[in-house]
């Protein structure tokens, strides 16, 4: 129950940062995708149907605050979760480098799937816009992931998120 509540609160905080705090404070069009980073965490922490369901719910919630195509993020985040599972199960996810690779792969997969979903929704120039801003998005996600890893390590919160113990630098 505690973990479900923590997951819910983390989702809410990620959405608030992306939809309210970031536009008001920074004002850049490109925002860090904290919901995607949460899906990456999920892929590292959960390896069952429960993880898939959580990723789908996360995407469904994201659909209400992002984009104009309800259902798109549900499919996208579920697929990102499954796409990251082989990396999480086969490799040593305690390595910070591998975690960053997972964030990179996750961002790439996310962008690719949004473009794919956009074609079905007749969102004409979405693919151009995603491709134009992809590098900025990747960089921002990586920077945020590094900051989050450092914060989690600093305050010893890895256990709370059921993440593998992060390696010491």
């Amino acid at each position: 129950m505690k973990r479900v509540l923590l997951f819910f609160l983390t989702c809410l905080m990620a959405i608030l940062i992306q939809s309210v705090l970031w536009p008001a404070v920074v004002g850049l069009d490109v925002k860090p995708d904290l919901v995607l980073l949460l899906t990456v965490c999920l892929a590292m922490a959960e390896r069952s149907f429960r993880g898939s369901f959580a990723a789908f719910m996360l995407g469904s919630w994201y659909d209400i605050v992002a984009g104009s195509h309800p259902g798109l993020h549900g499919v996208v985040l579920l697929t990102v979760y499954w796409g990251l599972q082989p990396i999480a199960t086969r490799f040593n996810v305690e390595s910070t480098v591998l975690q960053m690779i997972m964030v990179g792969v996750g961002t790439l997969l996310h962008a690719f799937l949004v473009i794919g979903g956009g074609f079905f929704a007749e969102a004409g120039g979405l693919w151009q816009f995603v491709l134009m801003n992809f590098l900025q998005q990747l960089l921002l996600n990586l920077v945020c992931a590094v900051v989050l890893v450092l914060l989690l390590r600093r305050f010893g919160l890895e256990r709370w998120f059921c993440l593998p113990q992060l390696e010491k630098v």
């Binding site: 992306q18 939809s19 995708d33 994201y62 992002a66 984009g67 993020h73 979405l126």
Partner: peptide, 13 residues
């Protein structure tokens, strides 16, 4: 009240 949470879309609440 809020802007779109994603970088790829442009909506407001």
């Amino acid at each position: 009240v809020a802007e779109d949470a994603s970088s790829w879309f442009r909506t407001i609440l």
